[in-house]
Amino acid sequence: MSRFCASFTIVNRRGLHARAATRLVQLASRFGCDISVRRQEQEANAKSVMGVLLLCCGPGTQVEICARGPEAEAAVTELGALIEEGFGELD
């Protein structure tokens, strides 16, 4: 099955905080594929807000998004766009 991965940098001021994580999880949950977020050696299910929060990604952190299954490529692209536009919170 196809698997897509891409790396992104957290650019919003607070990092991958509660509301940002919520938006990430909500978006990820719209896709039927398995999606993970990895920060260094730690990996989390992108559909788990606890998992994403527990990565404790502050601003400037590099994360890798990987998706496997239907629409994997679209999922990575859309999630990447959300991260790069700072979850719509950039001043």
Partner: peptide, 16 residues
């Protein structure tokens, strides 16, 4: 209400 969705997701979190 803005916090509600965060809390709902935390309560219903698969990892938890």
């Amino acid at each position: 209400s803005t916090f509600k969705s965060v809390y709902r997701l935390m309560l219903q979190d698969p990892l938890l």
